[in-house]
Design a protein around this nucleic acid. Structure first.
Length: 335
DNA sequence: AAAATCCGCAACCGCGGGAGA
DNA sequence: ATCTCCCGCGGTTGCGGATTT
């Protein structure tokens, strides 16, 4: 393995940083800043490459860094964010003040390993079981629907169970098979996009409709929004603006798009619930948001969710098929 | 008590993208 | 348009402390 070009030129030290090196780097950056990292080592008197200095500063020496164990809120936020953006650790870290992408990445990887090694044990008969991912199987949704009487205060517990579920190996990969482990979270697991200005949707808080909204992820979302300490910033930069103008009703054009052969996505819409993300709509979004925000793969599986719509069995079916992700839209999105 | 194993985490590596020449 | 440099990111490695055997 070769080293980075900037590290080849001269004798650069590698490995762990000594306290003396840390002190040099801190002293230099606090007095001069770090305009150009490639110049930092020389000017700071360090036998390191600029890249190494940058990494050390960002991941360890930065004054605003926050160390120590992740809180339960942080854990859940990471899980939620990861479900949305995947392994974009820097993006996730940007929503966790004081945490670095490296720290979150390490946390996630070790957490995953832990969950793989210790698949969650099934709880009581009335609780969700651990035999399937949370969003791609009938079992999980059946479990979710089995919680019809569960108050939102139980969301945290539910989420833990759901997370455990999601990390248990699917039944199809039972003993005797040499297949590699399946992805821990299905590629199109239902997900949500938050806006700090979004308050819990009426349909989530209304006692009259709560029975139809017991999808585990929805429940968690409502609880998260309810908690004052759990402020969720917009997850995807700029995406909220585009969403705000989106009509999620069943427009004729959109319905037509579905008929145009959009992988049968209309199935999740036929009941008048959430709407599918049609091709034409997608193109409009791409114009608004930029292509990088909406790749074809993601958009094809997006299932829109409106706050005044109810989660019906048909919608659940669409999600559990694995064909759709779920985009939750709060009431303010329609302003 | 010693060896083996596990596990967390700091650090390295390669790659892609942006900016400037 | 092309090249070079630099930065930032995600994936991976390997060290060293903790735990287990």
């Amino acid at each position: 393995m070769g080293h980075h070009s900037c590290c080849n030129q001269q004798k650069v030290k590698r490995g762990l940083w000594s306290p003396e090196e840390d002190e040099k780097l801190i002293r230099y950056i606090t007095t001069h800043g770090y305009g150009c990292w490639s110049e930092v080592p020389e000017k700071a008197g360090l036998q390191r490459c600029g890249k190494s200095c940058r990494l050390r500063w960002i991941n360890y020496l930065r004054p605003d860094i926050r160390r120590g164990r992740f809180t339960a809120e942080e854990e859940k936020l990471i899980i939620s964010l990861h479900a949305i953006v995947g392994n974009r650790w820097a993006h996730i870290a940007s929503h966790l003040p004081g945490r670095t992408d490296n720290e979150i990445k390490n946390y996630w990887n070790s957490w995953i390993k832990k969950k793989i090694r210790k698949p969650a044990v099934s709880t009581t008969s009335s609780s969700v079981t651990t035999s399937s991912p949370p969003c791609s199987t009938a079992a999980s949704d059946a479990a979710a629907l089995g919680h019809l009487q569960t108050p939102f205060s139980a969301a945290e517990h539910q989420l833990d169970a759901i997370i455990s579920q999601s990390l248990a190996l699917p039944p199809k990969l039972g003993a005797g098979q040499d297949s590699p482990p399946a992805p821990l979270l299905p590629p199109h697991c239902p997900f949500f996009m938050f806006d700090t200005s979004v308050s819990p949707p009426s349909s989530l808080t209304s006692p009259g409709t709560v029975a139809q909204l017991q999808h585990p992820f929805l429940t968690f979302t409502a609880a998260a929004m309810d908690a004052p300490s759990f402020q969720l910033p917009p997850l995807v930069d700029g995406i909220g603006m585009g969403m705000a103008t989106m009509d999620c009703g069943l427009g004729e054009e959109r319905g037509h798009d579905h008929e145009g052969g959009n992988n049968g996505h209309a199935a999740g819409m036929a009941n008048g619930g959430s709407c599918c993300y049609g091709q034409q709509q997608k193109q409009q979004e791409e114009e608004q948001l930029g292509q990088d925000q909406w790749d074809d793969e993601s958009a094809q599986h997006l299932l829109m969710w409106d706050d005044d719509q109810e989660l019906t069995p048909s919608n659940l079916e669409a999600m559990e098929s694995g064909a759709h992700s779920l985009l939750f839209m709060g009431p303010n999105d329609h302003a």
